[in-house]
Amino acid sequence: MVTLKIDGREVQAEEGKTILEVARENNIYIPSLCYHEEVTPYGACRLCLVEVTGNGRERLVVSCLYEVADGLKVKTNSERIAANRQMIMELLLARCPNNQAIQELARQLGVEKTSFKLDDNQCMLCALCVRVCQEVVGVSAISLVNRGVDRALATPFYEPSDVCIGCGSCAYVCPVDAIRFEDIGDTRYIYWPNNKMEFKLKKCKTCGNYWAPEKELEYIRKQANLPADAFDNCPDCRE
């Protein structure tokens, strides 16, 4: 265990944890967009910037990656931090002017409008979906393609992905609802910012409802080594 100070408050933390994790444990708010406790931190949105003082030096670090240490002093807000967060929100607002989640976070951080020309994206490339697909689902169906300003979220070559199981985890985890899915009749549609895919849903033997993508069920069945009829019934009709 180490002892550190966050905004003047002394807190105890397990070694190896990041400032952001420890702050959350202690109900101290630090804004973030690209962090999720289930996946490896990525450090791309830079909103979780904090000021740390250790070894006598004060500097800005991203709290989702910086590990706590004994005697560390952390400031989660200051004029300098706020100015950076606001500029980042202005940049995101220009990229995704019509995205509600981004508008809301901007407002919360004191930004009403952006100084830049407006584009029209929904995705801000935090790669949470990519990381969840790879690390949690384990299939890597989507990734960030191209470099720099051309960076985009897509399946390989923008083609329908062979490996995607249609589970929709990407949509669940997206912090700004840039990925959506809907089930209509016997089909699930997943809409990514740059392409979409369709999945056949499995029909429950008992109630006849379409309840999950066949590919997903097949994937889980194989992973868990379940018998062939394991998913014949939907959860409601299973005993």
């Binding site: 950076n84 940049l91 960030l144 720099g148």
Partner: peptide
């Protein structure tokens, strides 16, 4: 630099684009 930014973090990717504009 805009062309060479890897595009991972917001300030560099979006910031250089806006500077260039």
């Amino acid at each position: 630099l805009e062309g060479e930014s890897c595009g991972k973090c917001v300030p560099c990717r979006e910031g250089l684009k806006r500077m260039s504009q």
